[in-house]
């Protein structure tokens, strides 16, 4: 019995040491890269908001986070909502949502909606879909045809637009848009006079 335990320890101890070493290495690299990755994500978010509302490089919009309801009214997949202004002018709203049902991880999307509930534009912040295959759905040519300028009623009453060979990604994109519009409606009801 003692011999077997010693054998087990002799085999497992090196594995534990190797795992500890690798974890320490990853932690050290993460310590240096995490702030840079966060900065990159912030820059990507800011640039995406500008692109969604068609602003130039020099224009700096004000992006105010909106308070999300903490109850069952909050659609699943909703991450955040922002009111976007340029000076005193309200440009619209930006919904940060995830689209479930993708081939790989959930899509993380930004959906820009104007005061009338129409989709201005949308973009993908993060996706792990197959390059050249699933991510075709995320190209401007596909989604602009089906989603831009549509309202919540038009989207929910129609079948999800599907691209052959990228069915799952197209479904995830539909779910993300659906979630963004549901979030917009929730916030509209909450405030009574607009999101």
């Amino acid at each position: 019995m003692k011999g077997r335990l010693l054998d087990l320890a002799r085999i497992s101890l090196p594995l534990v040491v190797i795992c500890t070493l690798m974890v320490a290495l990853i932690a050290a690299v993460n310590h240096f890269t995490a702030p840079v990755i966060n900065e990159n994500e912030k820059a990507l978010f800011n640039q995406s908001v500008k692109d969604l509302f068609g602003l130039s490089k020099n224009e700096e919009p004000t992006v105010d986070p909106l308070h999300l309801p903490e109850n069952e009214l909050l659609p699943s997949g909703a991450l955040a909502a922002y009111a976007v202004k340029m000076g005193e002018k309200q440009l619209g709203y930006c919904m940060e949502v995830t689209g479930s049902g993708a081939y790989s991880e959930d899509l993380r999307m930004l959906v820009a909606i104007d005061g009338d509930g129409q989709i201005i534009d949308l973009c993908c912040l993060a996706s792990s879909e197959t390059p050249g295959k699933g991510d075709k759905v995320l190209n401007d040519g596909f989604y602009s045809t089906y989603y831009l300028g549509r309202t919540v009623d038009e989207i929910t009453s129609a079948d999800p637009p599907i691209l052959s060979g990228s069915t799952k990604t197209a479904t995830a994109l539909y779910n993300a848009v659906d979630c963004a519009l549901a979030l917009y409606q929730t916030l509209t009801v909450q405030k009574g006079d607009g999101a």
Partner: peptide
């Protein structure tokens, strides 16, 4: 897998567009 994770973190930090292109 440890080194792949490290390379992935480094690429996301310093070559974000390349990391985005390579995806999964």
């Amino acid at each position: 897998s440890g080194f792949v994770t490290i390379v992935e973190m480094l690429m996301k930090a310093y070559l974000p567009s390349a990391a985005e292109k390579l995806g999964i």
